[in-house]
Amino acid sequence: MAYMFFGYFAGIIAITAILVVALRNPVYSALSLLVMFFHVAGLYITLHAEFLAAVQVIIYGGAILVLYLFVVMLLNVNRDDRYHSQWRVAAFVCIPLSIEFLVLLSGGIGSAHRAPASLSVEPYISNNTLAIGKMLFSTYLFPFEVASLILLVAMIGAIVLAKRDIGENNAKHMTRAPGAR
């Protein structure tokens, strides 16, 4: 049963991941990524990470993907999307990576069936959200605060980058680079 669920989710994830790269229209790529996010959330549920599954659907599927689709439709790009002209360099990088992947795959399967190392952890609490909250606010309190700082900086940075005329009046008298707008 577990194998069946894993096979379904893994198959859909792999197929849609390849479709994200292969499809030419960015809207289709984004929608295929949405399907992949939902199936990753399903995979999280089979791994007993219910809170992360909900967060995955809400943040990735709800916020990030909508932002992508918004930008795609704002910029109105669905043309001239061939592959990069430096695809030889890409192949030169990717083929060793693929070979390494295959080597690791052929060598490492048998050794992964060992029992996990005995860690001194308390038994898994059935309430996943409660356990994550307790851990987040005790052990990982400082990284949690740093994450809030990252979000603040990203918000200010996005506003400054995307807004058209911040500092425009001040920069008017300065010399402008010939490539600037």
């Binding site: 991941a17 994200v20 790269v21 992508y68 790009v77 990069h84 695809w87």
Partner: peptide, 20 residues
């Protein structure tokens, strides 16, 4: 999935596809 992402970053020309 990770290799697919690496290949996508390297061969796509659309910046949105690279972010995806």
């Amino acid at each position: 999935v990770f290799l697919t992402g690496v290949v996508g970053v390297l061969i796509r020309r659309n910046i949105i596809a690279i972010l995806l």
